[in-house]
Simulated assay, not measured.
Amino acid sequence: MTDIRRYVFALAPLAAAALWGGMYVVSKWSFGAIPPLTLGFLRVVVGSAVLLGVLGLGDGRSTVDRADWPTFVALGVWVTLTNATQFVGTELTTASEASLLTVLTPVATVFLGAVALGERVTPAKTAGIATALAGTVAIVAGQYDLAAVGAGSLLGVVLLLAASVTWAAYTVQGVRVVRRYSALTAATYATVASVPMLGALSAVELAGTPGGLASLPTDTTSVLAVLYLGVGATATAWYLWYKGLEYVPAGTISVFFFAQPVVGAALGAALLGETLGPGFAIGGALMALGIWVVSRERAEESEEESATA
């Protein structure tokens, strides 16, 4: 594979973060009518169907070693925990809390990558992540009233912190199977494994919801919103996230996660008429600089690896 293609695929997580940023706009339209655990279930059902369809076009189904199935199930557990904690936590907290706590994911990923995989945490990587984090905070501060931080429930804050850790675990534990098989295979079977788990949680949730299953909206806007979550923010984004993992360390791809609130704020201004805060330009520049620093360090490492190969 040429170096250019390698660098392009290494940037795939940036596209994933952009798709996740779009979830902010979609949720403004219609997700208030869908209970959080059920919403998580619907997204993985649609995502699984899309991923299985794409995987079925190749021969990925026949290449998985039986000994690796427990790893895919474990990844499904992390997916389930991430969806449950993130959606319920977001419902219980303020927008500012959700935005700030979610971007702790890269920090958790770098830590777990160092502990579980022995990845290097260099000064340049630390500086890049710190810069991107500062930029993200500046953007969030311009969009929300940070004085409202703490207004949400303590349980919601704990759940969002847990979501940051569980997605980091999904990223780090996925390294081995992603590189042994492919990003598509790993993303597909991890998502499929989460379907019955989230299905069970959804069933319990709907049993306690007035109207149960019949209470779910079936209007066109809600259906399109769920399709966006399933096709765009799940099938496509999760594949792209793992695609980057084929070429760079988990701690390196994690920095692209900071692009999510930038895209969300920009789309909110473009599609919902929201006003971008004064810190958007400065925060976006800092975020981009941080990503560039981390990405540049990896590019230099790749050149050194090629020279010594």
Rank of each mutant, 00 (worst) to 15 (best):
M1A: 14
D3C: 00
I4P: 03
I4L: 09
V8L: 14
V8G: 03
L11G: 06
A12C: 03
P13W: 01
L14F: 07
A15G: 09
G21K: 05
G22S: 05
V25C: 04
S27L: 00
P36D: 03
P36T: 11
T38R: 13
V44M: 09
A49D: 02
V50C: 09
L51Y: 07
L52K: 14
V54E: 00
G56A: 14
G56Y: 13
D59A: 15
V64G: 10
T71M: 10
T71C: 05
F72K: 11
A74F: 07
V77A: 09
L81H: 11
L81G: 15
N83D: 03
T85K: 10
F87E: 04
L92I: 07
A98N: 14
S99V: 00
S99G: 15
S99E: 02
V103H: 11
L104G: 14
T105H: 06
V107Y: 08
F111H: 02
L112R: 13
L112Y: 04
R120M: 00
R120C: 05
T122W: 00
P123R: 14
T126V: 15
A127H: 10
A127D: 05
A132D: 06
T136V: 15
I139K: 06
A141S: 14
G142K: 11
Y144E: 07
Y144N: 08
A147L: 05
A148W: 02
V149M: 13
V149R: 15
L154G: 12
V158D: 01
L160C: 13
A162R: 14
S164V: 03
Y170C: 01
T171C: 03
G174Q: 02
G174N: 05
G174V: 02
V177W: 03
V178E: 06
V178T: 15
R179K: 11
Y181L: 04
S182L: 11
A183F: 04
A187W: 05
S194L: 00
S194A: 15
P196N: 02
M197H: 06
M197E: 07
L201P: 11
E205M: 03
L206K: 15
G208K: 10
T209E: 09
P210K: 09
G211P: 14
G211A: 13
A214Y: 03
A214T: 07
S215T: 10
L216G: 08
T220L: 12
T221P: 08
L224N: 11
L224H: 10
A225F: 05
G232Q: 01
G232C: 09
W238A: 01
Y239N: 07
L240K: 04
W241A: 04
K243N: 08
K243R: 14
E246M: 09
P249H: 10
F256K: 12
F256G: 04
F257D: 06
F257I: 13
A259L: 13
A259V: 10
Q260Y: 03
V262A: 15
A266D: 04
A269I: 08
A270C: 07
L272M: 12
T275I: 02
L276P: 06
G277F: 06
G277N: 11
P278V: 09
P278Q: 03
P278G: 12
P278D: 06
P278W: 06
G284F: 04
G284C: 06
I291D: 06
V293D: 03
V293E: 05
V294M: 07
S295K: 09
R298Y: 02
R298I: 01
R298M: 13
E300N: 11
S306A: 15
S306R: 15
A307G: 07
T308Q: 12
A309F: 01
